[in-house]
């Protein structure tokens, strides 16, 4: 446990020094500021009803930005360290492979989750301070959704970084996976379904398995669960499972997926050559 905490601390300190982290934090901070500036201006015309719409818009932007940020920075860091020879020295120190690997993942999770969460928390704090009303139920669900989304892509990133032998291959792999998941969101699924005449179950299974889809649907369902907003596949799933069960699935599945990918990555890491 001691080594795990030290490994996590090392990764946090390493990330806090990196330029990508500064950029990453600025992106999410700026999104919230911009949403406030433009959202509030707009809402004066439409009539301001609280932070719900701002949070939904923020979370929709997160689904586009967060996964690719997490993937690229994670795979570059691990595969890059291996290629640069950092592993040869650091793993000659008496630190368990499990402590090193999971410590790195936990440290990285804290670093990628906190800026996204803090930006959202700052918006909520401002809403509370300005007495414009904060939808706390939405805030809590979104926090949980961000945790599961970040964990899912972190797990994928760790798996890719252990499989790829160079940072370039890892980065390309990460980008391709993100692109595939993005393409298999509702609209593309609908296109595939119509063109290939796929059975409905297959389309639904693909949609359920895609963490981006489950995150997106869960983010919207508390706010505006109509087919025109959700998309057909998500609407069918929601109709089949019901709101609460879908929410549980949307929160649990990415965590299971991320953990499974990370565990697979760890198995590969433990069994192969380290440097």
């Amino acid at each position: 446990m001691r080594a795990l905490i030290q490994s996590a601390r090392l990764d946090i300190a390493e990330s806090l020094r990196a330029r990508w982290f500064l950029f990453y934090s600025l992106v999410f901070g700026s999104i919230v500021v911009l949403l406030f500036v433009f959202g509030l201006t707009e809402s004066r015309i439409l009539g301001f009803t609280g932070l719900s719409r701002l949070l939904v818009t923020y979370i929709q932007l997160c689904v586009a930005i967060l996964p690719i940020f997490v993937l690229i920075t994670t795979v570059r860091s691990v595969a890059g360290d291996r290629e640069a020879g950092v592993f040869e020295y650091m793993l000659a120190l008496p630190v368990g492979l499990g402590a090193w690997y999971w410590g790195k993942m936990i440290g990285r999770f804290i670093v990628v989750f906190l800026p996204v969460f803090l930006a959202m928390a700052a918006a909520a704090a401002w809403g509370e301070y300005s007495a414009i009303g904060v939808p706390w139920d939405l805030f809590l669900v979104y926090t949980a959704l961000l945790v599961s989304l970040a964990w899912a892509f972190l797990g994928l990133g760790m798996l890719i970084s252990t499989l790829a032998r160079s940072p370039d291959v890892a980065q390309t792999g990460a980008f391709l996976i993100w692109l595939v998941l993005l393409l298999f969101l509702d609209l593309v699924l609908l296109g595939v379904m119509v063109r290939e005449q796929l059975p409905l179950e297959a389309v639904v299974a693909i949609a359920v398995a895609n963490p981006l889809q489950s995150f997106r649907t869960a983010a919207i369902l508390l706010f505006d669960p109509q087919m025109i907003v959700l998309g057909p596949a998500a609407y069918v799933i929601l109709d089949t499972l019901g709101r609460d069960l879908y929410l549980v699935l949307a929160l649990a599945w990415p965590v299971v997926l991320g953990t499974a990918c990370a565990a697979l990555g760890y198995r590969q890491f433990r069994r192969g050559d380290l440097p």
């Binding site: 020094r17 640069a84 000659a92 008496p94 630190v95």
Partner: peptide, 21 residues
């Protein structure tokens, strides 16, 4: 048994690792 074994090993590599820390 890497933690037990490496706890007794001091290692100096030929090429120093490019540690940013």
């Amino acid at each position: 048994e890497r933690t037990t074994v490496l706890g007794r090993v001091g290692f100096v590599p030929q090429i120093p690792p490019p540690l940013k820390m």
